[in-house]
């Protein structure tokens, strides 16, 4: 099982490694619905609108000067990379250009790619076969970020690996949140622990942890109600859920996943910061990346908050929740229209 996954990841890696990717990708495409292809087409919008403008800029024969740098900055800001991160990125690019003595714009693409990769850092994918059981995952985020959908997809992913999955309906506030989760659980074949509307979320979660222990579940995924990070009492409630989990099971929650809407702007940074203060987050899932012209928030979140992006949602299909692989992401951003993969 694990071997299979590693192989899969390696293949997608290979697919992303520029030049000789043409051989690896069709194969992985056949096996896995074309992870890279899918990412590429999902990010097509981003690429078409912004990064293809970059390729337009980085033509042979154009000199690297301040004007060019400012145009690149503009494009980055327009793709939600954020002012702070853009400036940092461009400082690094300028330094690299100087160090390498580059003069032609066409040489900038690889520098840019390398610097973005550098900001994104090492990939830290979600463990597919948990080391501990029950492996507990707490899912948080603002209203409408896509928590419940992400949980549905996540549950189905663990199920397809043969894991016994329990989901806790910790969103007892929003109307019909439980029902929505129940439908996802049915699709994925996961068990749902529910406390009923208006139940105290922490108590539902507490019960779920015990249920997971007694029923030998491999994975417990905890849904929480969407909450704006500006609401102090709701953030306190979240902190309590985290504490309750830790008390019910040593080391829980093992994974604290913050779900961020990919179309959100610089607000994502403050969201990440405040949620992190309530329950230290271990990873970020960025959703709805297929619709946005701006994947830039992925870069900003990692660069400014230091929270690794672990998952990205690139479509509505059950398997459209993917491990985030920085190399693939950057390659997909820069891949030009005609490039065969």
């Amino acid at each position: 099982m694990l071997k299979n996954l590693l192989k899969r990841r390696d293949k997608s890696r290979a697919a992303a490694e520029g030049g000789d990717s043409s051989q690896a990708a069709p194969e992985s495409g056949a096996q896995q619905g074309g992870w890279f292809q899918r990412l590429k087409s999902s990010l097509a919008k981003t690429r078409k609108q912004l990064f293809s403008r970059l390729s337009g800029l980085l033509q042979i024969g154009r000199k690297i000067d301040e004007e060019l740098m400012e145009e690149i900055e503009e494009i980055l800001i327009q793709s939600d990379v954020g002012v702070e991160t853009t400036l940092r990125l461009m400082d690094n690019v300028r330094a690299a250009v100087k160090a390498k003595g580059l003069g032609d714009a066409s040489e900038l693409e690889s520098v840019l790619k390398a610097e973005i990769l550098n900001l994104l850092g090492e990939d830290t994918p979600l463990a597919c076969v948990p080391a501990e059981s029950p492996y507990t995952i707490l899912v948080l985020g603002v209203n409408g970020a896509g928590k419940t959908t992400t949980i549905g997809k996540l549950a189905s992913r663990f199920r397809s690996e043969g894991q016994h999955v329990i989901v806790a309906a910790g969103d007892t506030f929003r109307a019909a949140a439980e029902d929505q989760l129940a439908i996802w659980c049915e699709r994925a074949g996961a068990e749902l622990i529910r406390g009923g509307e208006q139940a105290e979320p922490a108590s539902v979660v507490f019960d779920a942890v015990h249920a997971a222990q007694h029923r030998d579940a491999d994975v417990l995924i905890v849904d929480t109600a969407g909450r704006l990070h500006t609401k102090k009492p709701l953030m306190d409630e979240l902190a309590k859920i985290g504490r309750v989990m830790g008390r019910a099971h040593e080391g829980a929650p093992h994974e604290v996943l913050l779900v961020i809407d990919g179309t959100v702007g610089q607000n994502a940074l403050i969201q990440a910061k405040v949620f992190n203060e309530a329950v230290p987050i271990t990873g970020v899932a960025v959703t709805k990346l297929d619709g946005t012209a701006k994947g830039g928030i992925v870069i900003a979140v990692k660069a400014e908050i230091g929270a690794p992006v672990k998952l990205i949602g690139i479509g509505e299909r059950l398997d459209d929740l993917r491990d985030f692989a920085a190399a693939d992401f950057v390659a997909a951003l820069f891949a030009s229209e005609g490039t065969e993969t």
Binding site: T263, G265, A293
Partner: peptide
């Protein structure tokens, strides 16, 4: 429209 939408708000 979510008021927190980024640069994409106008495209949407």
């Amino acid at each position: 429209v979510d008021a927190m939408t980024g640069q994409d708000a106008v495209n949407v």
